[in-house]
């Protein structure tokens, strides 16, 4: 990647008392990337985000924003970040306009730039109709949008969004996803979420964090390739013979599954045609022949569930 590195995080640790919330997390975010942060509840997603945005001090490790160390020059580093925490930090007593102008001032947006900045953020987040309403009277979805508007208001290089689509209706979710993709073109975005399709729809890179550690980090394109799978699932009416299938060209090995089913592993090109022809000639009666697609969900569950039980055991032991 020769794109500009916006965030550089190295060996980040964070302890709550003796409990490690984040352990040895290192990653980078480049311009034009949308990084999806996945993980089960309490995995350390929010903690990591709070550290990046300077709301929480790391126990150890280094965070560089735009090449500026967050601890050395917090003001300069924070200027490049827009942050939407889990709970939108809105003042319920203010109107949307008052609030956004206040945020613009806090982010040191120049006086003559405030008006355009606020109206652009409002327009992007679909807030144009509610500018004079009290935030406290708005629905959760609108409050969330005000939170997002606040995060992108000062046009920061990096936008950190902690579960941005929580509480939104499907239409709004689609709008926000489009907005995120659009922002991703000339910003760097970190997005945390539980919703896996959201990651697949919006992100260019995925990281799964589990029990404070990064367990998975992959570019979306690469992931797609991996997920595309290298196996076929075959189901027939009559019992099938594994040996016959094994002989077919392009098939590495065959695992028999229960009930006239088999998984056929292959390396490069799918041998579906040959398999179908074989089944037909043997008269087994083809019921199903499908590509065994691994979903992101499976990856997620594989990575986070297997030692979740181990975690429970140690928890019980302690």
């Amino acid at each position: 990647m020769d794109a500009k590195i916006l965030i550089h995080v190295e060996q980040l640790y964070r302890y709550y008392g003796h409990h490690p919330a984040v352990e040895d997390v290192s990653f980078e975010l480049a311009l034009g990337e949308v990084l999806g942060f996945l993980g089960p509840n309490g995995a350390g997603k929010s903690t990591t985000m709070q550290m990046i945005t300077g709301n929480l001090a790391p126990s150890a490790g280094q965070i560089c924003i735009n090449g500026v160390d967050l601890l050395d020059a917090p003001g300069l580093a924070k200027a490049g970040i827009g942050y939407l925490p889990e709970q939108p930090p809105v003042y319920r007593d203010l109107t949307v306009d008052e609030y956004l102008y206040y945020c613009a001032r806090l982010h040191r947006v120049a006086r003559n730039q405030r008006g355009p900045c606020v109206s652009r953020a409002k327009q992007r987040c679909g807030l144009s109709g509610v500018d004079r309403r009290l935030i406290g009277n708005l629905s959760k979805g609108y409050q969330q949008r005000v939170g997002i508007a606040q995060a992108i208001l000062h046009n920061p290089a990096i936008v950190v969004l902690d579960e941005p689509t929580v509480g939104l209706d499907p239409n709004q979710i689609r709008d926000i996803r489009n907005l995120i993709r659009e922002l991703g073109e000339n910003h760097g975005i970190i997005l945390s979420t539980h919703i896996l399709p959201e990651v697949q729809a919006t992100c260019s890179r995925v990281q799964i964090i589990h029990r404070g550690r990064l367990v998975f980090s992959e570019h979306m394109a690469e992931l797609e390739r991996r997920l595309a799978g290298h196996a076929l699932i075959l189901e027939t009416r009559a019992p099938l013979e594994v040996e016959t299938l094994q002989q077919l060209p392009g098939i590495d090995n065959v695992t028999a599954l229960a009930g006239n089913r088999a998984r056929l592993h292959f390396d490069t090109t799918s041998p579906a045609e040959a398999v179908a022809a074989c089944v037909a000639s043997q008269g087994w009666g083809l019921v199903e022949l499908a590509l065994d697609r691994q979903t992101l969900e499976q990856v997620f569950i594989d990575l986070t569930c297997s030692d979740a039980t181990a975690g429970n055991e140690t928890g019980a032991a302690a």
């Binding site: 945005t53 300077g54 709301n55 003001g75 300069l76 924070k78 942050y83 003042y91 945020c103 806090l106």
Partner: peptide, 14 residues
């Protein structure tokens, strides 16, 4: 309590 301190803390203000 309202988690609005985050707004001030993430802004470039000391």
């Amino acid at each position: 309590r309202n988690r609005t301190l985050t707004l001030l803390m993430s802004a470039p203000i000391s």
